[in-house]
Design a protein around this nucleic acid. Structure first.
Lengths: 130, 130
DNA sequence: TATATTGTATTACTTGATTAATACACTATA
DNA sequence: TATAGTGTATTAATCAAGTAATACAATATA
């Protein structure tokens, strides 16, 4: 499991962990049944207190993306494809809604906003395509 | 000047003030030379400390949207239309970029993301049209 | 120039989020 | 059942953001 933590970004460590693991589950880099890295191992690797990792895992558990088994470890939950899609949709709705509200409040017409969105999409996509 | 503050939203008061006044300037509800409500008046109306309002105004000044005149008051700056457009564009770019990045990271194709954006736009627009 | 009105600088209080320390609980298995 | 490995509950320390109190500074004008 590959995680990149920026200790100086101002973004809390546990949120960086949450986001990255969630994304790996969303994109099936981590699949049902896969064991997450041990709380202590990940804490040591990131040079962070184990509770920080445990906290991050707690949020993922609350989203029902992982299951904790005391004494054993944490594992990626079985997530039905439909539910996974709904989670993705919800994440997406949140950011797209924010964008739409901003556009409307600034008086930007739909077409114009859509064009800018497409431009942003393509720019980021071309920079990060494998 | 009409401001609505939600004391229980978790969003800091000064940010709510900034956002709403900025928007009024962007949409020309407040125009060049208009005087902003007095620090003390607005503070009293919102039942908040004057420094909280002063802080909000400081940010607007940093954006060069308002000018402070000690002993007199604060006024909406002369903002060239071009610059105003650039400010709008920047605000919009920020939210649309965030949305695009999220979509890409979730593996959502451009077309699909655009459709959802349009849907969000129309929903909010129809709810808030005058 | 005295006063009322405007905004400001400095300082401190409060609160919540984040992180960490410590001791504890559960499980597999030698 | 002893031990090593797993996660956890509780508590405390730290830090930053937000807000407020107070005294101060600039301006217009009676």
């Amino acid at each position: 499991m590959l995680l990149e933590i920026d200790h100086h970004s101002g973004v809390p460590i546990y949120r960086q962990v949450i986001r990255q693991i969630r994304q790996q589950i969303m994109t099936e880099g981590l699949k049902e049944g896969d064991q997450l890295e041990t709380v202590r191992d990940l804490a040591a690797k990131l040079k962070v207190n184990p509770m920080t990792i445990s906290k991050a895992y707690s949020f993922l558990e609350a989203e029902e993306l992982v299951e904790r088994k005391r004494g054993i470890g944490l594992f990626v939950s079985k997530v039905k494809k439909g539910r996974l899609d709904r989670i993705k949709a919800k994440l997406l709705d949140t950011v797209l809604n924010r964008a739409a509200v901003t556009a409307i409040q600034l008086g930007i017409p739909e077409d114009e906003a859509v064009e800018i969105f497409k431009k942003q999409y393509r720019e980021y996509d071309s920079q990060n395509r494998r």
